[in-house]
Write a protein that binds this DNA or RNA. Structure first.
Lengths: 115, 115
DNA sequence: ATTTCATATGAATAATATTTCATATGTGTT
DNA sequence: AACACATATGAAATATTATTCATATGAAAT
């Protein structure tokens, strides 16, 4: 796919067409999104997230790793626990934009949005 | 996964946890993202997009359908052509937020972002 | 130093999304 | 009406991503 002519990423040569995709990919998953929304309320350790979402622990860990890799969440150690917290600066405004979008286009049961 | 306690989507009952995922899913694909960036410049018909991105036509049509379903793009007819344009209100600010995010965390070749 | 609790990891399997390609539809032209 | 051009669609094949589960690591407690 040709894309050299497209001006993207405010001219940082390391931000390209795929940077966006990869970022979106991380959020395009119900479990990871569940974690994001869960951490939106407050920081939590892995066990707490596991309990809150009622999902098997290794799944949570895999998902957290993915989210951490692209800095959507960050970790802190506390004894044997890992406390995860949301990078709110980026995520919260994005979720708000999608809220507006959905409020505008997705009134009533919105089949178009379904997969 | 439990999620009833999470306040999402400004209380529109049709916006939930999955609304976000589905939206992100649409953008989490190099071809669809290519189209979005291509349409950011100006509106174009299918042939023009096909030519610009150098991708087989039916692929473009499939991708456009997906993007249209969730209102990321819209269409207008003009003779036998379909002119697609980007819904800039939602997408452009989101891309900007990711630019800032990437500029902050992705300096130099950023392996963490890779799949 | 052994046990226990908290979390992470690898790799096979399963689920899901994308590509492909043949063909259909729709619109204008002759 | 026959043709040509523009775009869309269905469905099988393929590629990508997520889940699973057994197990590893790491840190505190006994």
């Amino acid at each position: 796919m040709k894309s050299g002519s497209l001006k993207i990423g405010k001219f940082n040569p390391y931000i390209n067409h795929n940077t966006y995709c990869i970022f979106f990919e991380k959020l395009a998953n119900p479990l990871r999104m569940g974690i994001v929304l869960c951490l939106r309320q407050k920081k939590r350790n892995v066990s707490e997230i596991t309990k809150e979402l009622q999902v098997e622990q290794s799944k949570i860990s895999h998902a957290l790793k993915t989210l951490k890799n692209c800095n959507i969440v960050k970790v802190n150690k506390k004894g044997k626990q890992r406390i995860y917290s949301l990078n709110k600066d980026t995520i919260l405004p994005i979720l708000k934009l999608i809220d507006s979008h959905a409020n505008k286009y997705c009134r009533g049961k919105c089949y178009l949005w379904e997969k």
